[in-house]
Design a protein around this nucleic acid. Structure first.
Lengths: 220, 220
DNA sequence: CCGCTTATTGGTCACCGATCCAATAACCTT
DNA sequence: AAGGTTATTGGATCGGTGACCAATAAGCGG
């Protein structure tokens, strides 16, 4: 009865295998932390021998930074997607800010916190963080500018407004690993939302309203 | 010639030795990171055998969290000292916010970032972080309230104002490990300073001015 | 001054990382 | 169908960590 689930050996194309590895690494990074993106852990995840991972990533740190980049990119595409023609900037901003301010996407906040710290010791990760940072910033600046053109936002310095919003978002992200009761008085998440509204001349409550409106009205 | 710097054995009182260990650990934590607060590393720092450290801290994690608490407490006492009767709230706030916003105290910002992330995995550290967080918050709230009473600050919600300032400060702290050129357009450090000024009804530039004034005028 | 408590030593052990490498076998090419 | 390329394996090595412990000696109290 010695079932032989020992799947012998499955040989895949380098591209495919590599993608598979990065995918698994990103998954672990997001769920368990970048320090658990280890040759053995990823190998285990894929049901493969550690040596194989080393074959594709001779330097383990590179896998770590790729995992971060991959996870981060995918998350951004869902949180701050590039212009959807039909969706006004206010709604796009609302999704981004509210999505991060509220409990959702805690994974992502933790990952950023993780990466920002770990980048102190890992050169390649530091570069990846910087890159992702500027991509995000660019996306947000573009969004703000578009909103200004459509008259939805009001600011004389789009870059500055974006920076303020990002600092607030990252500030909240600092608390991503707190597990204290959310009785922080003035709903801590509001800080980012209010900051965005203030900086862009939106009436208080606008952003949360837009999000609620959208989720209640799934099919236009 | 065999100099015998092998200091035989120096036996100290438990209290003294323990303090010495925590001191060394705090130093390493601040300068090299909490993950380097290791039995061996601290022992080396003190010219002592690792076993001794284990004798005082059977659970290594406790040393880590104590190191954080120690370092953090000392730094706070210099950055946000408890009421000095002669110093007006504006100046005390200025020292705190500007001190953190500008390049100084990078060590401290890195340590906080470090601790906030690492607390994801270390229970005892998580508690220490939460404690230090609330001590700092309480100190800042008290300061804001005092400023409101003296008429220097203007806000209808001291706690909220303090939270905003802290989020901005922590947001900046997120970038503590960046080594990119500081050409971030609108001086990134300004975000915290401006946030404080805005939230407390201070004229723009007030805080930086106060700091400059104080450092130019050492002896009253 | 001697004895006893205990701070301090100098190891051991198990665990878990990265890195490297020879041998194996999957699969494509001819 | 045979051969060759190389993806994949299964080790071994090395360095670092925490935990643990018997033995030693420092220095205090009698």
């Amino acid at each position: 009865m010695t079932s032989r689930p020992r799947s012998q050996r499955t040989r895949k194309s380098p591209d495919q295998r590599r993608a598979e590895i990065v995918e698994a690494a990103a998954h672990i990074a997001l769920g368990e932390g970048l320090e658990l993106v280890t040759l053995r852990r990823i190998a285990e995840e894929l049901g493969v021998r550690p040596g194989l991972i080393h074959h594709y990533f001779p330097v383990a740190d590179h896998l770590v930074s790729e995992a971060f980049t991959h996870a981060t990119t995918r998350e951004r595409e869902s949180l701050l997607p590039p212009a959807e023609e039909d969706l006004p900037p206010v709604d796009r901003l609302a999704r981004f800010v509210v999505g991060l301010a509220d409990g959702d996407h805690l994974d992502l906040s933790r990952l950023w916190l993780n990466a920002r710290h770990l980048s102190r010791f890992k050169e390649s990760l530091r570069l990846a963080v910087r890159t992702q940072e500027s991509v995000t910033r660019a996306a947000l600046v573009t969004l703000v500018q578009k909103g200004v053109r459509t008259g939805e936002f009001e600011t004389d310095d789009a870059l500055k407004a974006a920076l303020y919003i990002l600092v607030a978002v990252d500030g909240l992200g600092s608390y991503a690993n707190d597990d204290s009761p959310p009785q922080d008085g003035p709903e801590i998440g509001d800080v980012a939302v209010e900051t965005a509204e203030t900086r862009l001349g939106l009436a208080p409550g606008t952003l949360r309203t837009r999000v609620r409106a959208r989720s209640a009205d799934p099919a236009p």
